[in-house]
Amino acid sequence: MNGVNGTWRRLGTAVGFALLEHARNRFALVLVLFYIPLWLSLESWFVARKPASFMLRATGRTLTVDGNHLTMISGAVNTVTLIVGFMMFMTTFKSLAFDRRLAFAGYPRVHLLVAKVAAMTLAAALIAAYATAVVHCYWAPVRPGLLTAGLFTAAVAYGGIGILLGSFLRNELEGMFLIIMISLLDTMLQNPISNPEASKDGVHLLPEYGPTQVSMAAGFTHAVPYRQLLLGPAWFAAMWLLGTAAFHLRTRDHRPRGRTPRPAGRALD
């Protein structure tokens, strides 16, 4: 029982501090508060309100919608992926040495990793809801709740990519560059604006594909594409598992097992 209490206490402590770290990350907060409205407002202002047609593969139907609205949804997906991707890359990258010190002091690595995911999930949900609210200031998506869900899945997919890159890259610039390049490629290859048909096999394997399909469906139809809703979290799970493996490799204890005790003190009550 004491062990269970200790486990929950450690997990709670790690989650609390991971959340605090995000809350105190002023640069990320500024990006969220100002960059999302700025990006979406500029799109609303500059992009013509002409009809645009694209194939929504989630429903199998070709839709003709307001090009301005289409661009705003695409922009919302793009902003949340970049912000959460950067956020998770930076937090993983910058705290690697500190996390290793905690792990060597006896903190279970799984708790540290789960804490990062819990904090990211909450941050991604808040950011997705905020981006939906900003879109709603300009026009009314058909299903705003589903749009939030679509943006959330986009955010967690790139959060996973950020965690993976932060776990093995050794340079901040490399991480920033890679996240931008991945996001650009991803958007160009499957986005309804750049590729309205998106008909080639394999397009569904791109990380933004599922979230974009869900967000488009939410903006313009009453359909709920359940399968596509799972693609973003699947991307996150795959990236997180790889990131976890990299984290374990970089924080492993090289002392011979059984001969040298861990540097821990007394047992936690």
Binding site: G6, R9, R10, T13, A14, F17, L20, E21, R24, N25, K94, S95, A97, F98, R100, R101, L102, A105, G106, Y107, P263, A264, G265, R266, A267, L268
Partner: peptide, 21 residues
Amino acid sequence: VLNDFLTVDQHVRYFRAAYGL
């Protein structure tokens, strides 16, 4: 090797949990 976003007290609490004190 510290966390820039946390205070001195928060570091102590974090490592108290790590060491199981």
